[in-house]
């Protein structure tokens, strides 16, 4: 069955890459040069999908103050990856199962015991991560572990790429269809309940979506850094606009742009792809922090200086 899926994904991915390369072919020779290699084509497509999906979700993460939760889920994914590796499943599936189980478990702990969310996360997810490290150190080489921890977008296989695309499509569809619910729940949970929406379903739905996105991004940016992609684009966009649809668009743009530029850097300087993508995203954030016309530091300095002069 796994083999059938491999063949199927190779076909689908080939079609998609054909389309993508049609666009890349329009670019100047010097820019398009790295993409003569199949692995770079796959890496580019993965980077775009992951950047867009993470950017989209990051807005809700930032507005809901869930960065910590994102970090926690990404760590809880490791034992799933290890076990999937052991039994020969796509790592994607194992990762999603343990990630989802632990993130749902955390809600339960928080509701039914006196532990607060941060303690529950701290305990549950470090434990899961430790189990993952123990298993992986037994079964896999250290380069393999490095790839899981820090990502290796240059080595993405067609099957993993297709799963990433599917996860991205699910995320986009869910946000598009339930935009009103997500907006309402992140903005005003009490109003959400007063209007009779099932806030529990929205809550866990968002957590599952978050888990899915994390799992989809693993190969690209890796467990340690995925949370950066789930916080930085949203935080950057939040500095630049006061409207949610615009914020979503900017965050997606930041995610995709960082992923593509990071991929270039990784290719030319032989860097870890996850690291270079996150460095680009963080640089964009710094720029927004300083130069944002609305909420930037520069503007604040000028305003304060103007006020001081006036007195």
């Amino acid at each position: 069955m796994v083999e059938g899926f491999d063949a199927f994904s190779r076909n689908v991915v080939d079609v998609l890459l054909g389309g993508l390369m049609g666009v890349v072919g329009l670019l100047p020779e010097s820019i398009a040069e790295p993409f003569q290699y199949a692995f770079m084509q796959r890496a580019l497509l993965t980077a775009i999908v992951v950047g867009a999906t993470c950017g989209l979700l990051s807005c809700f993460i930032v507005l809901k103050r869930w960065s910590l939760l994102g970090d926690a889920i990404s760590h809880a994914v490791l034992p799933g990856v290890a076990i999937a590796y052991l039994v020969g499943w796509p790592f994607f599936i194992g990762a999603f199962i343990t990630g989802a189980l632990t993130s749902l478990g955390i809600g339960a702990i928080e509701r039914h015991t006196r532990l607060k969310a941060d303690a529950a996360m701290g305990v549950m997810f470090t434990a899961a991560f430790a189990i993952g490290v123990v298993i992986i150190s037994q079964i896999a080489s250290s380069t393999h572990l490095m790839h899981i921890l820090f990502g290796n977008v240059l080595g993405v296989q067609p099957a993993a790429l297709l799963l990433t695309i599917i996860a991205g499509l699910i995320a986009v569809a869910a946000v598009a269809l339930f935009y009103k619910e997500l907006l309402l729940y992140t903005f005003d949970p009490v109003q959400t309940r007063a209007l009779g929406f099932h806030s529990g379903r929205i809550h866990y739905g968002l957590i599952l979506l978050l888990t899915l996105t994390i799992v989809a991004s693993l190969e690209t940016v890796g467990i340690i850094l995925v949370v950066a992609m789930l916080a930085t684009p949203g935080a950057t966009a939040h500095l630049l606009t006061d409207r949610l649809p615009v914020m979503l668009a900017i965050a997606i743009g930041v995610g995709v742009f960082s992923a593509i530029i990071g991929l270039y850097l990784a290719y030319y300087f032989n860097l870890a792809s996850g690291g270079s993508i996150v460095v680009v995203a963080s640089t964009l954030f710094l720029l927004a922090l300083v130069f944002s016309p609305r909420h930037g530091l520069l503007r604040r300095w000028f305003r304060d200086a103007a006020i001081r002069r006036a007195h």
Binding site: L63, K180, E181, L183, L184, T186, F187, D188, V190, Q191, A194, L195, G196, F197, H238, T241, D242, R243, L244, V246, M247
Partner: peptide, 27 residues
């Protein structure tokens, strides 16, 4: 319909006056 006490809302949220009022129609 519920009108919350002032302190209990995220005023930093990126949303316009119009869209805020519109959320009353979501139900």
């Amino acid at each position: 319909a519920y009108m919350p006490q002032h302190e209990n809302l995220e005023w930093d949220f990126p949303i316009s006056v119009w869209d805020t009022v519109m959320t009353g129609r979501y139900g």
